[in-house]
């Protein structure tokens, strides 16, 4: 019962946390670029404004897909905080990811079509890596359940350093941050405009933004599993990880998806394999 309450609590608090993180992200990014930056609460103002706009659409599929994207992201956050099976909640998250692609493919715009193809390439890269990270977590703790992994007595980072590296790479791809921001980007001058988001506007874009906040929370939650023994350690790990994400986001030029597929995926597989071999031999 507590786990269900915890899940429901997360369902309510996750968008708040996700929005705050997005605000912090923009602020820090601005400072790195010698700008003043928007207020921390700016993402909330932005989304509120989106919901206030006149709804415009291409076709009904598109709207349907936006809702399902939000559904997948929200349910996976619920499952995570309710302590459910990591793989199961990851596949529930995949419902959202796939429907975002469906939504982009539902419009004949070349920008959103290319964005969708690139998003599929991103999924192709991060999905096997994340599955292997979960296998590593299960191997180290004896269970795929978030609840069991969370109560593991030792910080898992020490046992799974390479897998944590793989995880952060996969998460950069999952969150579509530079250098892996092929399928959509926050910069208006990209050659594919906003990729998968090109054809969305107003309240429907607001739904997608909300879903993205859920995803950010899920991603940080998975990172938190690597240092679950003390709150300080956990916060430090998350802060360092996210700071590194922002740093990489601001210093790296965008790579090509071919490079991602050829190098990031293979390197990630190799690192995971190495770390898993240690675990299996231990």
């Amino acid at each position: 019962m507590t786990s269900i309450l915890l899940g429901i609590l997360a369902l309510i608090l996750a968008p708040l946390a996700g929005g705050l993180i997005a605000g912090l992200d923009r602020r820090v990014t601005a400072r790195v670029q010698s700008r003043f930056g928007p207020p921390i609460l700016q993402p909330f103002y932005d989304v509120a404004k989106l919901f206030g706009k006149e709804p415009r659409m291409g076709n009904v599929w598109q709207i349907f897909c936006a809702y399902i994207y939000l559904l997948g992201a929200a349910v996976s956050v619920f499952l995570f905080f309710a302590g459910a099976d990591l793989l199961l909640l990851f596949f529930v998250q995949a419902i959202g990811a796939v429907f975002l692609v469906f939504g982009a493919l539902a419009r004949p715009s070349p920008y959103s079509q290319i964005g969708a193809q690139r998003e599929l390439m991103q999924i192709l890269t991060y999905e096997p890596l994340l599955i292997l990270v979960f296998v590593g977590l299960a191997k180290a703790t004896g269970s795929f359940k978030v609840a069991a992994i969370w109560s593991h007595p030792e910080p898992l980072l020490l046992q799974l350093p390479l897998l944590y590296l793989v995880l952060t790479t996969a998460l950069t791809i999952k969150l579509r941050k530079s250098p892996f921001d092929f399928s959509t980007s926050h910069h208006g001058h990209q050659e594919i405009v906003k990729g998968v988001l090109t054809e969305y506007s107003g309240p429907y874009l607001g739904l997608i933004e909300l879903a993205h906040w859920y995803e950010v929370v899920l991603v940080l939650g998975i990172c938190a599993l690597f240092w679950s023994t003390s709150l300080v350690g956990l916060l430090v790990l998350l802060a360092v990880t996210y700071a590194a994400e922002i740093f990489v986001d601001n210093t790296m030029a965008r790579l090509t998806w071919r490079w991602m597929l050829g190098s990031a995926l293979l390197a990630g597989l190799a690192l995971s394999f190495l770390n898993l071999v240690w675990l299996y031999l231990a």
Binding site: R56, I63, R107, G202
Partner: peptide, 10 residues
Amino acid sequence: ARAAVDTVYL
């Protein structure tokens, strides 16, 4: 959805 129908972005 009572949304105005848009053409694709080109």
